[in-house]
Nucleic acid binder design. Structure first.
Ligand code: MN
Ligand code: MN
Ligand code: ZN
Ligand code: ZN
Lengths: 144, 144
DNA sequence: TATCAAATGATTTTCATTATCAACAATGAA
DNA sequence: TTCATTGTTGATAATGAAAATCATTTGATA
């Protein structure tokens, strides 16, 4: 598995070790395509190893983020979520305010305009967060 | 003051009352152009009335938001901030990751593309949050 | 094997925000 | 005015996510 190798490499580069727990957490993380909260992931990992501590889940998610395997997603609801980063290009999110369904979107023209906007104000961009909130077609149909 | 009238109208429409505390909090809020956290505003209001409670500040900021006078801003640093909404059109934020300075920006073309992107996926937009993170010219100069 | 840093899980702590609640104040019939 | 009703407030407790603490265990290596 490519990701595990990357993680091991990342760890050893910083004098850290691959452990059983970290392996389980990585596997659980890779095993879901959801935007998963530490708490949710803790629930998943627990099924494989009931003795794992939730602090370890928090800690490992931070490490995965630094290793470039995970990415933090903040929908603004008070919980931090994580999504796959390796092999998953940057994208933004569109969220339905009624059913909380969300889809991943990218618009290259927007990305380009963001760069230009930054340049206009003398900024060099390091990243951005864009969340589009609305009502999905499902929910609009249901209401009608 | 236009804003105070709006607030009074908003309150009475919902069977609520304008009070001394709410008036002070509104004044303090209008008196600053910063993106202010409840805690910061609490500090400001306290100078005028040392007996005011911070719960009242939290409560009033929620009310101001519902009344369309304030708007929540979430820079993702764990504190919710509020900015003026009345007479201040929508805008997005560009934040320097080094000095935390931030400027307000709008790009009509981006706004337009966001609408189109939403339509493409069957969403009707109700709002969006866009934060551009980067390094400002000041900070880049300082480093060099 | 002895040493020492890293890792873990349980637990406590922090911090922002919300809920609770008793005391108080405004409103508006009667 | 009196009285009941309802909104308001401030102090305080509760909540919930995340981070810090710490004693103990584990692993690498000299
Ligand atoms: Mn995503
Ligand atoms: Mn602003
Ligand atoms: Zn929906
Ligand atoms: Zn700067």
């Amino acid at each position: 598995m490519k990701e595990k190798d990357i993680f091991i490499r990342f760890l050893s580069d910083r004098g850290l070790r691959m452990t059983n727990q970290r392996g389980l957490i990585l596997d659980a993380f890779l095993g879901t395509e959801r935007h998963v909260s530490p708490e949710e992931l803790y629930g998943l990992v627990r099924r494989k190893d009931g003795t794992i501590g939730q602090a370890t889940v928090y800690r490992t998610l931070k490490l995965l983020t630094e290793a470039g395997l995970a990415r933090e997603v903040d929908f603004g609801d008070g919980v931090l979520r994580y999504e796959h980063s390796y092999g998953h290009e940057h994208h933004d999110h569109m969220i339905c305010e009624r059913c909380h369904r969300h889809i991943e979107v990218v618009d290259e023209r927007i990305e380009e305009l963001q760069e230009r906007l930054a340049k206009k104000y003398g900024f060099v961009l390091t990243g951005h967060r864009m969340y589009l909130y609305g009502i999905c077609s499902e929910c609009r149909r249901r209401k009608a």
